[in-house]
Design a protein around this nucleic acid. Structure first.
Lengths: 211, 211
DNA sequence: TATTATACGGAGGGTGCCTCCGGTTAGCAA
DNA sequence: TTGCTAACCGGAGGCACCCTCCGTATAATA
């Protein structure tokens, strides 16, 4: 259960970490700018909405649009990169809460992190939809990393006896994800539903049996 | 249960049927062009994708862009209008299958119609998302008309003893809609799931009891 | 048929995505 | 440290698209 892979595996082959295609390390300025750009995109998307212009993002990063397009050949590639880092951050959150908190507290903290992740995802939804179409691999890789994150937190809580034994990370993802993503669910309703799910997954909550 | 309203109620106050704002009837050419434009938009969106240009739509309708923008002040208004007619067509499908088919056959036929509706909705998803944000009323009105459509078909089948008594139109909508809309479900998987739902809602299928 | 309110059409303004190429700089070798 | 070169940077500008404006055409009415 939950064979978790290192976070690097999520990244697409070309979009590399610190290497250019031929295996040569990126120049320091290039690497710095790439990170600045992703951070700027995150910032601008969340403040101006998903429709923010590429120019605005380049400006926020303090570089020209040419530099932006060198790193991300088109808008979708940038959106993709932002989403990748969001998913990776979620995975890191899972690792952090597991390292720092008691099993049950970690579960609660991870739910909070997941909600934050889902919110930024929602903002990029329209564009992400296209990105997923163009690049179906990314979707499934992201999905499996998210599932691993849930597994990491849940399996530990199960082992500690804090969470009932018949629930899996995958179950939770399928249950929680729509609640956080569906726009027809109001934020306070979502919060209520999540509390309900949390209550229902405690080890001492299991009562209902059905086929 | 299922107090169904006439389809006209779905339309927004301003987007009127055949009347301009002051209650004056639309000129014949204006009315004709409006219909041509919606039909053209439907056609072009489905052949060229949701990103199709306004110019292409006007051309397909055989009018100038000025005329398009007279009827639909911006892109989102047009998308909205297309979606409205899709929902109305679904409602009309419900009425038609109820009028023409046996209770159970009507249920099956309506599922087919719903899948067709969901497909066109999926194509416009990205833009619709924005339209819903701008105009939340539309979403809930569309939702309730869809629910009424399910109710119309299901209530009749329940009365005829073809469908189990403990299922509602709303339940079905909530169950079927994600299956048809979620892009991570493959078409053949969706078809399998729908068959399963159909089997499960037959009157003689009720066996499992749980709290 | 004459009048008039209303609709039509398409040129053009503004904006946004993306390309191109001259200038600059990091990394390396001597 | 210095000089070389491959790689990077920046922003002007091309192109496509959304939308506006206004002169022309036409349906409705008397």
């Amino acid at each position: 259960m939950a064979t978790q892979k290192g976070s690097t595996e999520l990244r697409p082959p070309e979009g590399g970490e610190a290497e250019t295609v031929e295996g040569r390390p990126m120049r320091a300025d290039a690497r710095r700018n790439r990170e600045l750009l992703v951070a700027a995109a995150k910032e601008v998307f969340s403040s101006q909405g998903a429709g923010a212009s590429m120019e605005a993002i380049a400006k926020q990063a303090g570089v020209g649009v040419g530099t932006l397009y060198r790193h991300f050949p088109n808008r979708l590639d940038l959106v993709e990169a932002v989403y990748q880092t969001d998913v990776e951050e979620l995975w890191e959150s899972a690792q952090r809460v597991v390292a720092e908190l008691e099993p049950w507290a970690a579960v609660e903290a991870f739910f909070v992190a997941f909600r934050r992740y889902a919110q930024t995802k929602q903002a990029l939804m329209a564009e992400l939809h296209q990105a997923f179409e163009k690049n179906p691999d990314m979707r499934s890789r992201a999905r499996s990393l998210i599932e691993s994150s849930f597994d990491l937190v849940i399996d530990r809580a199960k082992a500690a006896g804090a969470v009932r034994g018949d629930v899996t990370g995958s179950d939770l993802m399928q249950l929680v994800s729509p609640v956080c993503t569906n726009t027809s669910i109001e934020p306070d309703q979502a919060a209520r539903l999540l509390r309900m799910v949390l209550d229902g997954m405690r080890a001492d909550a299991a009562r209902t049996a059905f086929a």
